[in-house]
Write a protein that binds this DNA or RNA. Structure first.
Lengths: 173, 173
DNA sequence: GCTATTTGATATGTCTCATAACAATTATAA
DNA sequence: TTATAATTGTTATGAGACATATCAAATAGC
């Protein structure tokens, strides 16, 4: 055990740092020690969330919908006749930022704004037929590809358990 | 129950939409139907993640560290002598974006950049004493306040289970 | 009627994340 | 060795999400 020439580096002597690897001459760097980062729920949660959104985008790519757009279409379908403020609020989107989102959906012919006869300030949001069929296609892609992949990785029990835990955190924290 | 004067609104007779509530005269809007949004893991996961980061910021506010900064300090402590590319890569941060992060930490005296004698291109990153004590304070706040809160909401078993599931997703998806 | 509030919208600013390009340095090949 | 390629830190820049202030039109409350 010769630890002579090394400068005193803490007490938890880390082993050799670099290992040149493989026939292709690529020099790999030894994986770093994540330490207590692995015990930080928020850290892994964030990374999982990014991966999940990536997977969502890939699976739903045929209908060109982002997770946010998909959630808007779902809400419009389930809650016809609502205005922008109501939809934006329940999705946690601020009204100013919701304007451009709606512009994009409306310009693609997926939904429409129409002045409410009761309150001419507000716009009643409605899914178009194209919006409904697009939503139907998206739902199928989400169920068959995206959620299926998650269930495949986690297992059905854990997937269900995780849904509940994550909903509880979103609700009660 | 007089609902006479209202104009006929669609056919799927949704129940009354607005309920004026409370003594303070605030008019609440009936909660919208989230539909299958509650079954979308990514949706709740994202909302949970935002709440967790909020809670982290609140708990760690006394030492003024963001989750990203905390993760950098943790990594520097566990992996002394590494350069910017290595630290940034393992945290999933792109090198250009890591520069400003390091500027902030270095300007607060929490870490230092020094040219490596072996490879004068790279900067060896080192935690300062102030960085170490700050990290120690942050770790205590995270454990005693932040993670404690999560365990309080989820329960110890579920908290542990969720850690593993989320790590699995981040790893295998 | 008069004031305050609400709704959609615009402008703006910040923050995160991603890409291209560059100088200095090192590695590799001819 | 010299010429070429690759790497490191950096800057500049752009896209996207997210937040605030402000506005005109419309409505509500007094």
């Amino acid at each position: 055990m010769e630890k002579a020439s090394q400068p005193p580096r803490k007490k938890d002597a880390a082993p050799a740092r670099r290992l040149s690897s493989g026939v292709d001459g690529v020099v790999a760097v030894e994986a770093l020690d994540l330490g207590e980062l692995g015990e930080l729920l928020g850290y892994s949660l964030k990374r999982a969330q990014l991966k999940i959104f990536e997977d969502f985008l890939r699976c739903v790519a045929p209908v060109k919908l982002t997770p946010a757009q998909f959630s808007v279409l779902l809400l419009l379908d389930r809650n016809p006749g609502r205005n922008q403020t109501e939809i934006a609020n329940t999705l946690g989107i601020l009204r100013p930022n919701f304007v451009a989102m709606l512009d994009a959906l409306e310009s693609r012919g997926l939904c429409t704004r129409s002045r409410s006869p009761n309150d001419r300030r507000s716009h009643v949001l409605t899914l178009t037929d194209k919006g409904r069929t697009t939503l139907a296609r998206a739902k199928k892609l989400v169920a068959d590809k995206h959620e299926a992949r998650l269930i495949d990785v986690l297992g059905p029990q854990e997937h269900r358990a995780m849904l509940e835990m994550v909903a509880k955190l979103a609700r009660e924290l």
